[in-house]
Design a protein around this nucleic acid. Structure first.
Length: 453
RNA sequence: GUGAAUGUAGUUCAGUUGGUUAGAACGCCAGAUUGUGAUUCUGGAGGUCGCGGGUUCGAGCCCCGUCUUUCACCCCA
């Protein structure tokens, strides 16, 4: 028997990690619910017809496909095999796949349940997704996303509330140094017009998205290689290099895009989001209108977001945007949606790097009831029952063993209090309560102990 | 998917130009006149050197393949 291993890019989460993960997930869930989002879960497995074509050609290749059950070759002819056309063969032997994100399954759900859903529909979804990517630090093949989407309204209140939710979650997690980068698909189109790139638009977006990573010179170099003229590059970087607060930036863009209808639309959306935030009484801290931000997922059409934590070696921990026609592919056109997603795994990595998890994050009993002999152990059962009845997480050491071993157990499992039951305690009714952190111990009745928790 | 590194006790790492029985620290287990953990002392266990082939009298070390992790590209949480 070979040593067991895990598939590439997957991980186990032990109790210590799960405690921290749950801290993140529960924080996000609470914020989502506070903003009126309702829970939804969808299957891990979707039909490939649902998934393919939604993420672009690159995305399709990152889909995990599931081999048909039974004789999956029964409809395959020798001819198909002989052609070596793997795409066609894949189509023949696999009709299901693992979900790649939570947005597309959500769109599928909305279309299937459109008559029962009350619009605008606000749902949140916290589930794992799978991508056949090549793993690296902060990139896994199985990871959790926490999505919140609103579908069925154009209102930019949704965008503003996304910003508010991000701030609340980060505040609750103790993350202080981060930026919420926001851009607009229409602004990007405006930039495309400005630089005279029609067919080259996507190479333009891919290049400028790397700006903060590789720097201006390398971006220019890449764009020259794609045939952009020096004049066009200059007008592009005149916009990208504009320094100033959001207000000044909007004024500047407004002039720049005077002759660009998409550019105008983007600028007016920015303005509106700012004005909405002000009406909430919220400030613009952490918010940055980053014109170089270009998210790859092709279904975005309006505002796009990406959140980065500063000074950590992890990519973006959250991202999202508005999509005007996500349900169109499922036969329900003209419904606008907007949503975003937190990446639990990356938040975890970042918080670990920044040392932001509290010491007592570990999920464990509050009390261990220890005992010195069989009679005491019986007495301990009564004690733990009484503690649990009061809602105090507690456990009895199951075996008759030395007190030393029982205390070691409590120490390792980070159980903060130990009740020691010996013959003296049983006789007097005064139990020994030991504080494992300070080492202090007192004699207390069970009622007193319960009252102190 | 393309290109490049990496892998040695549970963990972090040593290991000489290929040469006897592969080491350390921490951790783990047991004990230090039996009702006290985390600190101290003593002793002990634990490795198919990622896995599979090859070269060699001889491989942890060299070669090939494979898997893992990591880095760049691509993309993204």
């Amino acid at each position: 028997m070979d040593k067991p291993t895990l598939p590439k890019g997957t991980r186990d989460f032990g109790p210590a990690q799960m405690s921290k993960r749950l801290l993140i997930i529960n924080t996000i869930r609470k914020v989502f619910e506070k903003y009126g989002f309702q829970p939804l879960e969808t299957p891990a497995i979707e039909n490939l017809t649902t998934l393919t074509g939604k993420y672009g050609e690159e995305g399709d290749q990152l889909l995990f496909k599931i081999l048909n059950s039974g004789d999956f070759l029964k409809d395959t002819t020798a001819d198909t095999l002989a052609t070596g056309d793997w795409k066609q063969l894949t189509h023949a032997i696999s009709e299901k796949g693992l979900r790649y994100d939570l947005t597309v399954p959500f769109a599928r759900y909305v279309v299937m349940n459109r008559h029962e859903i009350t619009f605008p529909f606000k749902r949140y979804q916290i589930q794992p997704v799978w991508r056949a990517d090549r793993p690296q630090k902060g990139r896994y093949r199985e990871f959790y996303q926490c999505d919140a989407d609103v579908i069925g309204t154009d209102s930019l209140i949704c965008e503003a509330e996304i910003i508010l939710m991000i701030k609340e979650v980060f505040n609750a997690l103790g993350i202080t140094d981060y930026s919420i980068n926001m851009n607009h698909r229409a602004i990007l189109s405006g930039l495309g017009q400005l630089t005279g790139s029609k067919e080259n638009e996507s190479s333009l977006f891919i290049a400028i998205d790397k700006l903060d990573k590789i720097g201006e010179d390398k971006v220019k170099e890449e764009l020259r290689g794609k045939g952009f003229s020096e004049a066009n590059l200059n007008s592009l970087f005149e916009v990208l290099n504009f320094k100033g607060d959001t207000k000044n930036k909007i004024e500047f863009l407004s002039k720049k895009f005077a002759n660009s209808p998409p550019g105008q639309k983007g600028v007016s959306d920015f303005k509106e989001v700012r004005s909405l935030l002000a009406s909430y009484g919220a400030n613009e801290e952490h918010l940055d209108f980053n014109l170089a931000l270009a998210r790859g997922l092709s279904y975005y059409t309006g505002c796009i977001f990406e959140v980065k934590i500063n000074n950590v070696s992890i990519g973006s921990v959250s991202g999202g945007g508005r999509y005007d026609n996500l349900t169109g592919g499922f036969g329900l056109p003209g419904v606008s949606g907007v949503g975003f997603s937190f990446g639990v795994d990356r938040l975890y990595d970042a918080m670990e790097e920044l040392n932001l998890f509290p010491e007592d994050a570990q999920v464990s009993s509050r009390v261990l009831v220890s005992h010195l002999d069989e009679e005491c152990r019986r007495f301990a059962l009564k004690t733990v029952y009484a503690l649990r009845k009061e809602g105090i997480a507690s456990e009895v050491y199951p075996d008759n063993t030395k007190l030393k071993k029982q205390l070691e157990y409590a120490d390792r499992k980070k159980i903060p209090f130990v009740i020691v039951i010996g013959s003296d305690e049983m006789k007097s009714g005064n139990l020994t309560l030991k504080n494992m952190k300070t080492g202090e111990q007192y004699l207390r009745t069970l009622a007193e102990i319960i009252a102190s928790f």
